[in-house]
Design a binder for these strands. Structure first.
Length: 886
DNA sequence: CAATTACAT
DNA sequence: TCAGCATGTAATTGA
């Protein structure tokens, strides 16, 4: 079976250029676009295994489209020279790959591809068209799928006609009509001014084509009719321009597109010229001067030793001079992860112990001693996870001095992958085998034979050894060394301690609650069935939608991509129409509590200890917050009484002890007051007044006694909005007022808190200038999209620029408090234990005799964690369980 | 595996 | 004109 892959060369190289960071070889030649293109090619070759392949290019500037419309592609930015110089390089590279390329004067790449895809259709050949241009969707058919690049170049979304129908409700050919109506700024196709994608789709769903829309123009309402009438010609011309010409007189036969694999030497030479070292290794291409084919690239320079092959003294010596270690465990939940081996490097010597080796005291005694030796420095990757995996088999990891995962997270917390493989790639190190290749995946996951495992772990430990100095250096450049060494690294140890300690959960409480919930659920269920007049799966939004909107004929408020929306917001609006709606809301509430919190939590309780052990992830949230998994203990209900009762199940693990909780009051607004320096806001906190009331007073210009509940509520919403990076739309949604009123509100707010406005303006400007924002402790977040031309992307980045320093600094502060608190507990020899962190709250279990001390110590530590221009405040409470500690 | 929904701060 | 408030995890459904 033949398989064709047709690539829109211009489109892809353009995308690649803008998606990749700048890259040059030592001769100063820019190579980023070619590099991006190449990675995409390699992926396609692997995934599609084409028998025929073609990269089509636009030839020259003038095409037949200019004959009717001179401004076609007018107003386009000139191609930057950094990109132009890469075109000839790409063409040369394609030659080395042995991939056909084609261009024809007077036609665009689209037309060439359109013509070939028509041939493919006629001959029934499976074909994939690769482009960054949505126009190409018009070529989709039973045999032709369109792969559109998504965010960068290596990721693509594939579309066949069914998916186009799903996404747009259009046939492939109607994509042309879509363009005819909405136009395309990048090609300077006008369409109908004022008609965007939404409107165009609505029209097409109604009338089917541009021509039909024009015919029925008189049916349209007011403004819309006017627009369509005045721009009839434009619409027709736009449609013509958007139509891909599929009858190009090709001079090439399809047999010339045959692809039979690349010749390693030619490709290797090309890659060397471009200095794509990682690709040479990835494809195991031959070294220069190496005559025969298939010689593996750059063999590892290190020596892999098994524990058994070293005598004790030799092993101890190696450990004493260790540079890095890698500890491997398999499984998502580190508390249940299976430890499978450890590798320790010292220069070019790497010793590996498998799990069995580690369980054999005669082999592993020195290693165990070393792992637990606080004074023996350890540099590794994800040692937090490792500490847990080791902890559960009775080995206490001590002396962590560097963690490549943490460092990578600090360097760029939004990077999509912080996996070791990704770090290796980003730093241009020799790539290693994927875990999937070594361990398999899913059901076939298994630990390989010891020798294979040893080599894999050695490769990882070696990579860590090479990464440490690079990452360290990068931290230094970003002024984050202190943040790393004094906050995140110590915190990782504190977290592991809290997690190993766990929190006691009383299953009886949950079971009783579960039984009660069950009763309520079945009552609501029968009520809902009765109202609906049928039984159906209430948990299925699809079935629920059918019942509500078709059977019962309730008005449709909002739609999702797949059907009717049935979220709480919609249901609340539907409440007046039918009794059933309220029952559904209650039913949802109860089933959520039942499945997530009662059943979910019960499943996580350890049989032996009666505790749950969450896992705090320190390298996930872009702002620096922690996240919690297995189970998530950061979203246990509190607002609604029914849910709040879940907290009664969280109890002290020793008789007579209490649960003590302390939470920061308004930490984010205090942080904002500090970093913005806004005098009014600082004053509010210094005087310790209720911030929302104070805001209401100032914004509405009334006295404290005149602030009613509604005014305070609105002020509170504005304060929240401010923290999130406010927009009039967001606020209007939240308060249920018009956008205009919301805008007025914000204006009044800023008139009062001028320092806040100044801060918001400054931080966005700064983000635009530097490309990133920072917290008080220099935690960094990059915001490349702040320069995007797309309004949504840019707005999102702007809000993030406003929010991240606030939320991130709040995260810094509580992390500091945790490290200090841990220190205090040890220093003072207290038995109290820190158990949980919930963003602005810390939870402890405390023996009776320490209660009085802890009631003052905990808030003291929290409030003094970081000195700001406004005081920090923490409120303490305690009780026999988490519910009582309120 | 993506989409929807809902819980927390 | 368009579109739309920050950060997460988890359960469930259904392709």
């Amino acid at each position: 079976m033949d398989k064709w892959v047709l690539i829109d060369g211009n489109s892809i190289i353009y995308r690649a250029f803008f998606a990749m960071p700048p890259l040059t070889n030592s001769a100063g030649l820019h190579t980023n676009a070619v590099y991006g293109f190449t990675t995409m090619l390699l992926r396609l070759l692997e995934e599609e295994k084409p028998t025929h392949m073609l990269v089509a290019f636009d030839a020259g500037k003038i095409t037949f489209r200019h004959e009717g419309y001179e401004d076609y592609k007018g107003g386009r930015q000139k191609t930057p020279p950094e990109l132009s110089e890469q075109f000839p390089v790409l063409k040369e590279l394609l030659q080395s790959f042995g991939i056909a390329q084609y261009e024809l004067p007077g036609y665009e790449a689209d037309d060439i591809i359109g013509t070939l895809s028509r041939l493919a259709d006629e001959q029934g050949v499976e074909t994939v068209v690769v482009s960054g241009d949505k126009d190409m969707l018009q070529l989709a058919s039973d045999h032709v799928t369109i792969a559109l690049t998504r965010k960068g170049v290596s990721e693509v979304d594939r579309y066949d006609p069914a998916e186009i129908q799903d996404k747009y409700g259009l046939t492939p050919l109607q994509i042309i009509d879509l363009k005819g109506l909405m136009g395309d700024t990048s090609d300077n196709i006008p369409g109908i001014p004022g008609v965007g994608e939404k409107t165009a789709l609505k029209l097409l769903h109604e009338y089917g084509s541009v021509e039909s829309v024009l015919e029925h123009a008189s049916d349209l309402k007011g403004k819309m009719q006017e627009k369509v009438q005045t721009h009839r010609d434009s619409a027709i011309m736009s449609k013509k321009l958007a139509t891909i010409f599929r009858e190009v007189p090709l001079e090439k036969g399809t047999e010339e597109l045959a692809y039979s694999g690349y010749e390693s030497h030619a490709l290797a030479d090309m890659f060397r010229k471009l200095e794509f070292k990682s690709l040479i290794e990835r494809l195991a291409l031959p070294d220069a001067g190496c005559t025969d084919n298939g010689v593996p690239a750059a063999p590892p320079t290190y020596e892999v030793l098994r524990a058994g092959s070293l005598d004790k003294a030799d092993l101890e010596k190696l450990l004493a001079t260790s540079e890095s270690l890698y500890i491997e465990s398999i499984g998502d939940n580190p508390h249940q992860a299976r430890l499978i081996g450890i590798a320790v490097t010292s220069g070019e010597r790497i010793v590996v112990l498998t799990y069995d080796d580690l369980m054999d005291p005669s082999l592993s005694a020195p290693v165990r001693t070393w792992l637990e030796d606080e004074s023996a420095p350890k540099r590794g990757y994800d040692l937090h996870k490792a500490e847990l995996a080791l902890g559960w088999i009775g080995i206490h990891l001590r002396g962590i001095t560097f963690d490549a995962l943490l460092a990578a997270y600090l360097l760029d917390p939004t990077e999509s992958s912080q996996s070791l493989a990704a770090l290796i790639q980003r730093h241009g190190l020799a790539s290693i085998q994927t875990d999937e290749a070594v361990y398999g995946k899913g059901a076939r996951l298994q630990v390989p034979e010891a020798d294979v495992l040893a080599h894999h772990l050695a490769a990882k430990a070696d990579a860590v050894r090479r990464l440490v100095p690079m990452l360290s250096n990068e931290l230094d450049n970003g002024k984050m060394t202190k943040l790393n060494d004094e906050l995140e690294l110590p915190l990782a140890v504190v977290l592991a301690g809290m997690e190993k300690q766990g929190i006691q959960v009383n299953p009886g409480v949950l079971e009783d609650l579960g039984a009660e919930l069950e009763k309520g659920i079945s009552q609501y269920m029968s009520g809902i069935y009765a109202q609906a007049g049928m039984e159906f799966n209430i948990g299925s939004p699809k079935q629920l939608g059918e019942v509500l909107f078709e059977k019962l004929g309730l008005p449709v408020i909002k739609k999702t991509k797949t059907g009717y929306s049935t979220d709480a917001e919609v249901l609340e609006k539907l409440e007046p129409y039918s009794e059933i709606v309220k029952m559904i809301l209650h039913y949802r509430q109860l089933t959520k509590l039942q499945s997530t919190y009662v059943e979910g939590l019960l499943k996580e309780i350890r049989r032996d200890t009666g505790k749950v052990h969450t896992y705090y992830r320190q390298t996930i949230a872009a702002t620096g917050r922690l996240s919690s998994q297995f189970p998530n203990l950061q979203n246990i209900p509190i607002r609604m009484e029914e849910g709040r009762r879940i907290r009664k199940a969280f109890v002290p693990s020793e008789p007579g002890w209490k649960i003590l909780a302390a939470d920061y009051s308004q930490i984010e607004l205090r942080v904002l007051a500090h970093i913005s320096g806004d005098e009014k806001m600082k004053e509010a906190f210094i005087e310790d007044t209720d911030i929302h009331t104070k805001t209401a007073m100032d914004v509405f210009g009334v006295s404290a006694s005149e602030v009613d509940a509604n005014m305070r509520r609105q002020a509170k919403a504005v304060n929240f909005g401010i923290v999130y990076g406010i927009s009039d739309f967001g606020l209007s949604n939240n308060l249920g007022i018009s956008r205009k009123d919301a805008a007025k509100f914000i204006e009044q707010y800023f008139a009062v808190f001028q320092g806040v406005r100044q801060y918001m303006d400054d931080i966005v400007a700064q983000a635009r200038k530097d490309g990133f924002v920072t917290t008080l402790l220099e935690r960094r977040r990059y915001l490349p999209e702040i320069k995007a031309s797309n309004f949504n992307l840019r707005s999102f980045a702007e809000r993030t620029a406003m929010n991240t320093p606030i939320q991130g600094t709040a995260a810094d502060i509580i992390k500091l408090a945790m490290v200090k608190m841990d220190h205090e507990l040890r220093e003072r020899g207290l038995r109290s234990r820190m158990l949980l962190q919930v963003h602005d709250e810390l939870v402890f279990e405390v023996p009776a005799e320490e209660l009085e001390l802890m009631k003052t110590l905990v808030p003291e530590v929290m409030e003094s964690a970081l000195k700001l221009d406004v005081p920090l405040r923490a409120d303490v409470s305690y009780g026999d369980n988490w519910y009582e500690a309120k």
